[in-house]
Design a binder for these strands. Structure first.
Lengths: 143, 143
DNA sequence: CCTCTATTGAAAGTAATTTTCACTGTACAG
DNA sequence: CTGTACAGTGAAAATTACTTTCAATAGAGG
């Protein structure tokens, strides 16, 4: 799966006439081996531990490229930080966010997706993406 | 309905030991007669047209109070601007957002709400709020 | 009226992200 | 190979959206 995403990104780079660089490789490796919902801050720190030479701006720029290439997606969970999550082709999921400890749980629900499509159709919208987040307290924090 | 919200806000002010001011009245009027999803920037411009003396910070502060009092709710639609929408007691709705013209359509769907509750229960979460947004192109922009 | 203290506007401060710019490195052309 | 055009980079400055500070002002109860 990592292999597949690296491949996708390589093809994106080529197709766009961009260049393959040491920094992009390092950032891609770090991203792919990171938590599924990582903030730029976290990824930057993770990177810097091994590769002190990489700049903040490059991390921002590269993550935007990942999103453009389709291997990552920007998400905002209302904590003021943009996170990037891994995207696997054809897969879609939504989130349960614990507002106490920050835990993020992914879930899929085909019936909800279906009902969303119905709503969109009723209003004449052509849907490109959607965002469904449930905010509350996770089981662990309730104890 | 406007009357009711003004009443709610007045009571909130009193209960909190805050003060009723000219600025708050003006901002409340402007908010209540504005679009249902207005950004601070938009509201500020709208206000300034009639009341040049009101400062940016006051608008920010006052909208936060509206949210606290329950007559407004903060929402973010990923365009980097916080919007405030009108809240009517006991009502909940979700959004269809046109990514071309910015139109926001509200909808309600009891079945989806129900399914969300089921998902949360399966994961042991106690849900406080949720956010469901469908992004796409509205009927008008498709033509 | 008076006084206490909430409120205000302007300006400075923050936080996250983006842009600028001079320098560097990649990849294609020859 | 090797020159060279131009994409990419890091550091710092800029931008954006919002928040805080602070001195001056003004509600509201006494």
């Amino acid at each position: 799966m990592k292999r597949a995403k690296k491949q996708v990104f390589r093809e994106f780079i080529t197709a766009k006439g961009l260049r393959s660089t040491r920094q992009r490789d390092i950032i891609l490796d770090a991203f792919l081996s990171a938590d599924r919902h990582i903030s730029i801050e976290e990824l930057y720190r993770k990177l810097r531990a091994k590769n002190p030479g990489i700049g903040y701006a490059t991390v921002y720029r590269t993550l935007k490229l990942f999103a453009e290439s389709g291997i990552a997606r920007e998400t905002q969970f209302g904590d003021g930080q943009t996170r990037y999550e891994h995207v696997t082709a054809g897969e879609h999921h939504d989130h349960l966010v614990c507002t106490r400890c920050g835990t993020i749980v992914e879930f899929e629900n085909e019936t909800i997706e279906q009902l969303q499509a119905d709503v969109a159709r009723q209003h004449g919208f052509r849907i490109d993406t959607h965002k469904l987040e449930l905010y509350g307290i996770c089981a662990k924090c309730q104890r």
